[in-house]
Design a protein around this nucleic acid. Structure first.
Lengths: 216, 216
DNA sequence: ATCCCTGGTGTAACAGTGTTACAGAAGGCT
DNA sequence: AGCCTTCTGTAACACTGTTACACCAGGGAT
């Protein structure tokens, strides 16, 4: 079954809607209102069509989400590793991965819920393996290193997905740190400022990579 | 009883259900069927009471979940740090935190969704700050270190929450690695075995801690 | 020309969800 | 006796995913 149902020639009648159109409209809805904002009826209305047509084209809601997730996962197939040293190359992979995933903030939660995180990571896992082998790691240690990096990167992304839109905690962490009597005023002040996720990710990932590749 | 609305004495009639009972029943339901399995009607039926009573006691579903989350967050108030070296003490904090959070697998997702991850982490953040200061880090660098550890730990937990019950990917990562022609057979074999999360967490966290505390 | 089959659409319903307007009941207070 | 507060129940609203069923249009076979 190619993209849709008709391979080349004979749709008895021009379909009012295509599988592709359904997927695209669903993507649009999710990007606007989040996964919870995607309802089959809204989707049908958006396309000017009855609900049953949606069901005919994509099965059901779960299958629709599965499809979107699969498409995104396949979009991660070829991530480039740049740089000269293994550390730099591994780091660039991690940064690139985060950059791409942040383009689909609503989907990465679904990916994880479906237990597809390993699958999503598989292509970059290959690249990681190459770099880590080049760095001289072998066998079980190398495998552990690869997985540690995977968990770190995807975990970071999962965390930062929500910490942005914190619901204004009343004693916010920032206020608490400013009130705290501390010996290190600079530290307190630094903890009282919002997180710079880009910088934090780069630093922590680099620290982890260094440690994993270096320590023996 | 006392925990509810009346301050000291006079419930006009013995309430058919208390706020406490609602929260407990909700916790039980969530532990059994997950957050999605918690419906207000099920909850009412479980307690042998009409839905409106639930609403009277807890407001609405969102507020109910908020309350459960808050209770869990407050349960993390006093985590001990064991060990002699700063590295060991920080590591023990991270391990302990993960141990506790894994006792509430369904709630930690909610915590993150509500942007409460920083709040949840605040008590252990204090302990972390102490250890990291003891390790000689100051100011912005220390703050970055604390946050890097936070993100790493909570991220790991978020990831592992789902990777366990992966829905049997058809070309599973394990199979793919066994099929792959590779120069490092041990590595491929290691990647083909399931993840040992305990070990992986301990190793990766230790690597990160070491790197963050040591490198200058 | 009739019939059937296949692809695609629509109507209307079922069961389930969160939430709420409203009517009560039961005890304490004045 | 009335009133007020605390709680509970009935019944509804709007919404969700999903499906049984009728329908319609065109192609192929008879």
């Amino acid at each position: 079954m190619g993209t849709v149902t008709q391979e080349s020639a004979k749709p008895p009648r021009a379909p009012a809607v295509t599988r592709r159109a359904v997927l695209d409209a669903a993507t649009r809805l999710i990007e606007q209102q989040g996964v919870a904002g995607l309802s089959m009826r809204k989707l049908a209305a958006e396309l000017g069509v009855a609900v049953t047509s949606i069901y005919w084209h994509v099965g059901n809601r779960e299958a629709l989400l599965d499809e979107l997730v699969q498409e995104m996962v396949h979009g991660l197939d070829t991530l480039p590793a740049r740089g000269t040293t293994p550390t730099a190359r591994v780091l660039s992979l991690a940064l690139e991965l985060r950059r791409v995933l942040r383009g689909h903030p609503h989907l990465i939660g679904l990916v994880n819920e479906r237990g597809l995180t390993p699958a999503m990571f598989l292509p970059s896992q290959r690249a990681l393996v190459a770099e880590i082998s080049a760095a001289g790691l072998r066998g079980v240690r190398a495998a552990e290193t690869v997985r540690a990096l995977q968990y770190h990167v995807i975990g970071f992304i999962l965390v930062e997905r929500h910490t942005d839109r914190s619901p204004e905690q009343h004693p916010s962490a920032e206020e608490l740190w400013l009130a705290e009597p501390s010996s290190d005023g600079d530290l307190a002040e630094a903890l009282a400022t919002p997180v710079d996720a880009d910088r934090l990710f780069a630093r922590s990932t680099e620290a982890l990579v260094r440690s994993l590749l270096a320590d023996q």
